[in-house]
């Protein structure tokens, strides 16, 4: 299914994804007792890497570049994945990563708008980022600008009524320049999504008039890239959503699919175990 021309690009995304995972673990470990949202960041690494290193246009030397593609991380608690990408993309100097969650740092536990470092919006209160992204896409459409708005949404986040209000509004306004990606890792804060609010997300977005694509292997960069390109090239005129079936805590054996690694501190032993997992691929 993946076009051969993308082979090299996929390799590059995978290299970046590996570096990002390492950044996530280093930053989360440095936070010490303050803890970090490891699971939510790790499930979304390939999604964020495919966006930043596969499809998005931007210039770290010119963060306000008018026709840059926008990335909105609505599930803001996964900020480590975002920061990790901004480091690899050259927006955030690498040495600053050790200030994650430190007093007076700008790298807070949820993104805080800071254009100098490429952070487009403040998020952390679930549901809001996605609705804001819809407004940004509508503005671009009105101004006849050609960039796209990409928005990362959690599957638990889709419990919020606000998400569905925005879904309806985006379809009504035919925001073809909007691509939402749902990180369907199947786990939210208190338990499995199937136990907390078992809804058919795919049917929901479809019913409200979005073009829907499911990526069965949501941690596979080749499949994600293919889906993103298809959505970019789509002529449906509808807003697009990619539902990526991911694994919460992906890449760290003791975090994968675990209910206890949503957010917590990581000790030295766990850190060493995590690094070993990353090094053994």
């Amino acid at each position: 299914m993946v076009k051969a021309v993308n082979g090299q690009l996929v390799e590059e995304i995978n290299r970046k994804a590996a570096a990002m995972r390492r950044n996530v673990i280093e930053m989360g470990y440095v936070a010490g007792d303050r803890g970090a949202h490891f699971g939510p960041a790790l499930s979304s690494i390939e999604i964020v890497a495919s966006l930043f290193f596969g499809v998005m246009k931007y210039d770290p030397g010119d963060p306000y570049l008018p026709d840059r593609d926008r990335f909105i991380q609505s599930k803001g608690h996964a900020c480590l994945a975002y920061y990790a990408a901004l480091i690899e993309a050259g927006f955030i100097p690498k040495d600053l990563m050790y200030t994650f969650k430190a007093d007076n740092s700008f790298l807070s536990g949820h993104p805080s708008r800071n254009m100098k470092y490429g952070i487009e919006i403040s998020s952390g209160s679930l549901g809001n980022g996605f609705a804001v992204a819809c407004g940004m896409a509508n503005a671009a459409k009105m101004k006849k600008e050609n960039h796209r708005v990409y928005c990362l949404v959690g599957d638990g986040e889709c419990n919020e009524g606000l998400v569905w209000e925005a879904v309806m509004n985006a379809a009504k306004n035919r925001l073809h320049n909007l691509i939402a990606i749902i990180d369907r890792n199947g786990v939210q804060l208190s338990g499995r999504t199937a136990d907390i609010m078992d809804i058919d997300i795919e049917a929901g977005w479809n019913a409200f008039g979005w073009e829907v694509l499911v990526v069965e292997e949501g941690n596979n960069a080749a499949h994600l890239l293919d889906a993103l390109i298809r959505m970019k090239d789509s002529r449906s005129g509808k807003p697009h959503v990619i539902i990526a079936n991911t694994i919460k805590g992906k890449g760290i054996s003791f975090m994968e699919n675990s209910l206890s690694w949503h957010a917590r501190p990581m000790n030295k032993e766990q850190y060493e175990h995590a690094i070993a997992d990353l090094e053994n691929g």
Partner: peptide
Amino acid sequence: TADLTPTARLTGFKEKYPDRFFDVGIA
């Protein structure tokens, strides 16, 4: 609760009184 069972320290309540515990999801 709205998906905050452990944060809200409701895990014990949920186990002991499942019929009187409601999680409306993140809403």
